[in-house]
Design a protein around this nucleic acid. Structure first.
Length: 199
DNA sequence: TCATTAAAGTTAT
DNA sequence: ATAACTTTAATGA
């Protein structure tokens, strides 16, 4: 995990419970808290003018949600929506910054985490601006697999995302994701088991 | 070629 | 049961 939970509690962090669909923060609001996921899953997203959703990232246990805004004097450029039963640790911005100053190694940990996020975001954006749907989807699957698994056994990794979420992450429409998944299955690039993608 | 629309089928709550 | 998600097909940029 990013920051030791005991340390967060010591500094006054509160445990918060969310259910699927709950909003942690909305685009355009000011960041006042540091959030770290204990269990569950959170998506960072944005809706364009036509209401089409793009997903920036899906955040897993041990990681923090929107932490980079705590170093800026700016509004959130995205929403954070909970995808399943989730437990979060929440610490006020001021306490969070105090904590960092007391334990400078946390700066290093955070830098490492944020750099990793930036790096992946960069790769995904490059990947998504290339037009072939297969390449887009493959790029995303590779990223998801590398993020969670150390050893890459083919077809061992279950993609626990809906087609809609894959569409949101690749900037394609759901139907295209479905067609592309089928195509990739026929080319033995992935396997399907009860509708779920094995990669 | 892919997005969009519509309609029907399937899964999850 | 109802909502959410998936699939297929037709059409248009």
């Amino acid at each position: 995990m990013l920051i030791d939970e005991k340390l967060l509690y010591q500094y006054g962090a509160e445990r918060m419970f969310f259910k699927s669909g709950d909003i942690i923060f909305n685009e355009g609001t000011s960041p006042f808290f540091y959030y770290q996921i204990v269990v569950g899953k959170v998506k960072l997203n944005h809706y364009n003018e036509e209401g089409k959703e793009s997903i920036q990232n899906i955040i897993l246990p041990g990681q923090s949600v929107g932490e980079c805004l705590l170093f800026l004097d700016n509004f959130y450029p995205m929403n954070a929506e909970v995808l399943e039963e989730t437990v979060l640790l929440k610490l006020s911005k001021t306490k969070f910054l105090e904590l960092l100053n007391l334990y400078p190694y946390l700066y290093k940990d955070l830098s490492l985490f944020m750099s990793g996020e930036l790096y992946h975001r960069f790769l995904l954006m490059q990947n998504n601006s290339i037009n072939s749907p297969i390449i887009r989807l493959k790029g995303l699957l590779d990223y998801l697999k590398n993020e969670t698994l150390e050893v890459a056994i083919p077809f061992s990794f279950k993609i626990d995302l809906t087609r809609q979420q894959l569409a949101g992450l690749t900037g394609m429409c759901v139907e295209t994701v479905i067609r592309t998944v089928k195509l990739m299955e026929s080319q033995n690039m992935l396997r399907l088991k009860k509708g779920k993608i094995l990669y």
